[in-house]
Amino acid sequence: MSLFWRVFLLNAAVLTGATVLLMLSPATVSTPVLPAEGLILVAGLVAMLVANAVLLRIGFLPLRRLTRAMTTIDLLRPGSRPPVSGHGGIADLIMAFNAMLDRLEFERATSNARALSAQEAERRRIARELHDEVGQSLTAVLLELRRVADEAPEAVSAALHQVQETTRDSLDEIRRIARRLRPGVLEELGLASALRSLTGEVRGAAARCRIDGVLPELGEEVELVIYRVAQESITNAVRHSGATRIHLLVHVEPSEVRLRVRDNGVGTGDAPEGAGIRGMRERALLAGATLAVETLAEGGTQVRLDVPISTGGGR
């Protein structure tokens, strides 16, 4: 039944009930209307309006739930759907909205996969250029500085050795950036070693990594999602929360892999989610995982990532 006919029948039911009640009641209307008769008419009108409002509110309740869902839905938290209720046009409208959400989530996941794939390819290209071109150039400069320092007078040699140490530090920093852009240890030694290496490279905070259980074969894309979420969580803790301790925990369950990154920083508070957290959510969607960022009662922040093992494929 269409929405038009539902509203029509609700109003018709109210008017019909009022007409029957008026026919069966002993009330009469005089000309001019007496005060007692006026009160009866006003009471009858109020009763009709109240009954009509109650019936319409009940009939439009599914639309109110749909409106609330439209204003609160978040495509980065998929799966939430308003229940299909009501009759006729209302149920059709809710089903059409749910189908639209399915298409939007699918298109967003597809476009995010392409964008993140292009981003990773660009990261690998920049890492190769840093390692092969800038790194080799600095290595050549370092060797030349060493040769010149050995042949220079003592006063100049000391200054050249200082420049040599600065160049060596710059070369180490470039190599570290290249490793962050392209986690070669993830490809060569696996996810467990990559996460341990990630915490081992943290500067400015004491970081430790614990892995409970043996990580199964999750597939390159899923492992990269876990690695990037851990990397972004640690980066946020060091740069933005002022954390001095970071604990990375991976727990392997029969049906899922759970990643927890905790810190003792200032927490997120009521601040809106930044690009980093939204990027983590987009990556979590690629693995069919759920991600939550919460402020701990004892202080600090915890990032939770739960990755179903069934979504992972073999290498």
Rank of each mutant, 00 (worst) to 15 (best):
A158W: 03
A149F: 03
H131S: 15
R125H: 15
A155D: 12
V156Q: 09
L142E: 03
D132L: 14
L130H: 07
R128C: 04
R147H: 09
V141D: 04
I126V: 15
D150H: 09
L142G: 05
L143D: 08
L142N: 04
G135V: 07
T139N: 12
E151M: 06
T139R: 15
V156K: 05
G135Y: 05
E154Y: 02
A158R: 12
L130Y: 08
V156N: 03
A155R: 11
P153C: 04
R124F: 10
V141R: 04
E154M: 05
S157T: 01
R147A: 11
A159S: 13
Q136Y: 13
A127N: 01
R128D: 12
V141M: 11
L143G: 07
A140K: 13
V156D: 06
S157K: 02
E129P: 00
R124Q: 15
I126Y: 03
R125W: 11
V156H: 06
S157Y: 01
S157D: 00
A159G: 13
A127K: 00
L145K: 03
R147Y: 05
R125Y: 12
V141A: 12
L145S: 02
I126A: 12
A140E: 08
A158K: 09
S157Q: 04
Q136M: 15
R128L: 10
A155Y: 03
D132E: 15
R128G: 05
A152R: 03
S137H: 15
H131V: 06
A149T: 03
V148E: 04
V134C: 11
E151R: 11
Q136G: 15
V141I: 15
E144K: 11
S137M: 14
Q136C: 11
I126H: 05
P153K: 05
A140I: 09
S137V: 13
E133P: 02
E129I: 12
A149V: 05
V156Y: 02
L138G: 04
L130C: 09
L160H: 00
A159V: 07
E133Q: 14
R128V: 02
R124K: 15
S137Y: 13
R146C: 02
L138Q: 08
V156S: 06
V134H: 11
A159P: 00
A152T: 02
L142A: 09
E144H: 13
A158V: 10
S137D: 14
A149I: 04
E151D: 12
V134K: 09
R124M: 13
R147F: 04
A155I: 05
R146L: 05
L130I: 14
